[in-house]
Design a protein around this nucleic acid. Structure first.
Lengths: 374, 374
DNA sequence: CTGTTAGCGCGTTCAA
DNA sequence: TTGAACGCGCTAACAG
């Protein structure tokens, strides 16, 4: 054969290793304009049944897949929302993301996660690297400055704060940490505990500070002396705190940990020290992550419907995105109120009485039934 | 004042609600060309100290942030990798993603996750919606067809399979599920167990099937009768399976669950039935998710360094991306070998002897020290 | 109903 | 060293 001067475009070969087909290739093959192809593929605009079929056929033949990046550039909509979080460790964040992912998928959005932003500096870089890549941002920065900074940096991209602060007039979602802590203490007091210690979260973390404040306030109101041990929201730190408390001369008869995983750590430490939970020491955590119901004794805690909160956060952000410019009405700080879930770890020491938490509204434990895939 | 025909561009106003500044705005303000701005901001190409400063100044004044979407389009590099997974539930996936995120961040990549793709249909849609949005894909589809389909769909975008199959000549990472299961059974046999039951994962899941096959083979080799109960990789299913096994006439003296969370469920069920672990029934799981070391008794399991595996997977994919076109040498299936971690849940029934798992290479438990942030 | 054209915002030759 | 112009792939006006 001689020179094949008019050879097929490279992309016609099945998987010859060449570049992927573009809308233009489809247009050529279908012998129509790119506009028509676009119209057909997006179902928008009037198209003849004939051209429609030719386009569809050509697209299939070329295994054409639209380039979402290019589409985003021209529509200035990425259908993607970014989630900035300090860490990706533990069940709390994974549950939150799971909830967001669920909502995102049903709303036609993608999720781009970016973690490990402890200091405002890193978070800032992460946020600006999101420009042109996302339609909105959800920022979980437990540090005050980071959040404010984030809000500023975002420019005009809608942003939802979940840093534990009140949002300062910006759309935000916050857990009623203070109220939850008060509930925890009141529950313990109501069930006969008096020497109630608190394992705090890391300093500078707004959530941790609010929980500590709630503990201190409730204890003061009850006229009880306080004991605070530092923790950092991790299992090991909870374990260490528990071990220390077990060694104290005046051992506490109850421990309120600022989150579940520290409570679990403390539970193990207490048990290793030969103490019984709840007989010798009652235990209560915060968050109600899945593991709370799997340890023995089951851990009493303050339930936040984590995945639901994540879902709701994402839905709200999408609403903000769709209302961009207009309804600046959403400047509210939505409050999630934790719900006391009484499990065996906080049963009264006096007797093995029934499941009454001592507070109306407390939820009796129902077998938690969720698991893990592999 | 009269008409301000030459008014400042809208974006000059601080945060007047107008669009964000583009590279062109910066160029105008600095009185240079966009090319120079690009050169300065990307540190590429020769630039005079003077223009450099003017550009930097203008950029700062305008709070200019490059539009990564546009950049991606022109460089055809998104610096983003997509992760397709069937679900986002449980510690396994969250640990995996954590590892990937760690690697991604240190390599300058973003992570876009997309879950809930049970059937091949959905996964397919998810994958094609990634085109032009990511530089590569990591696909965790435990179903055979889905994976093959994925590989085809990806076109020319690098893809790394982690579906439990051998990858069929494509780059992939797979856990030696069969070998792990054999280790589990041999460990139980070596410590005196004979009636060893297996709680299997969902049918159709390659990982689950390989673990089942390993169990069956090892049992046959040991000349022992098999007992298999169906599960679905979830805690509730493990609980149900455990309850059923506890009721059996010829109760097993050991249970090997196809993953940790089912083992935990089974453990709780056995204990609720009044059985002692490990005295009456030894228990062993698979994966070594964080919770395995937090339940009591601590769960013996086959450790996969989940986060490390995720990290390594991402690094390999990035390598594939950078080698695009050239080194098709990477067609290998990397195998991750699980490591037996002996914890109290599988101690010999005969006595409370020391931690020897009976197999060389078995890792004695060291206190697991990781926690959760809130 | 269809085709042409102009951007979206940025990187990048190629001259000057 | 700098700038003008083109292209990435697609959508959206605007003609025809």
């Amino acid at each position: 054969m001689d020179f094949d001067a008019h050879g097929d475009p490279a992309h016609l070969r099945e998987d010859g290793g060449m570049k992927a087909a573009t809308i233009r290739d489809v247009a050529e093959r279908a012998e129509v304009s790119v506009a028509s192809v676009s119209r057909v593929l997006n179902g928008a605009g009037p198209v003849t049944e004939g051209t429609r079929n030719r386009v569809l056929e050509a697209a299939k033949a070329l295994q054409y897949v639209p380039h979402s990046g290019a589409r985003s550039l021209s529509t200035s909509k990425t259908q993607t929302i970014g989630v900035i979080l300090p860490d990706l460790y533990g069940e709390f964040f994974s549950e939150l993301i799971r909830g967001m992912d669920l909502a995102a998928r049903s709303l036609g959005y993608h999720l781009i996660v970016s973690s490990s932003h402890d200091d405002a500096e890193e978070a800032s870089a992460a946020i600006r690297s999101m420009r042109g890549r996302v339609d909105g941002l959800i920022v979980l920065s437990p540090h005050l400055d980071a959040a404010n900074l984030a809000a500023g940096l975002a420019g005009r991209t809608p942003i939802l704060l979940m840093n534990g602060g009140d949002g300062a007039g910006r759309p935000s979602i916050v857990v009623d940490n203070h109220g939850g802590a008060v509930q925890a203490v009141e529950h313990l007091v109501a069930t006969g505990r008096r020497r109630i210690a608190h394992i705090a979260g890391p300093a500078g973390n707004l959530e941790a500070e609010a929980r500590l404040a709630g503990y201190l306030e409730a204890m003061a109101r009850a006229g009880l002396p306080t004991t605070v041990v530092d923790g950092e929201f991790t299992q090991p730190s909870g374990h260490a705190a528990g071990r220390e408390l077990a060694r104290r001369e005046l051992r506490p008869d109850a421990v309120f940990a600022a989150n579940d995983i520290m409570a679990v750590g403390a539970m193990l430490a207490l048990q290793e020290a030969g103490l019984r939970v709840p007989e010798d020491v009652a235990l209560i955590g915060f968050d109600d992550v899945p593991i709370a119901s799997l340890v023995r004794p089951g851990l009493t805690t303050l339930r936040i419907h984590i995945a639901d909160t994540g879902r709701s956060a994402l839905e709200r952000l999408v609403r903000l995105i769709n209302a961009a410019g207009e309804a600046v009405a959403d400047t509210a700080c939505e409050v999630v109120r934790p719900e006391l879930v009484v499990r065996p770890s906080s049963q009264p020491a006096t007797s093995t009485q029934s499941n009454s938490g001592g507070r109306p509204g407390a939820t009796a434990e129902t077998p938690s039934l969720k698991g893990e895939n592999s």
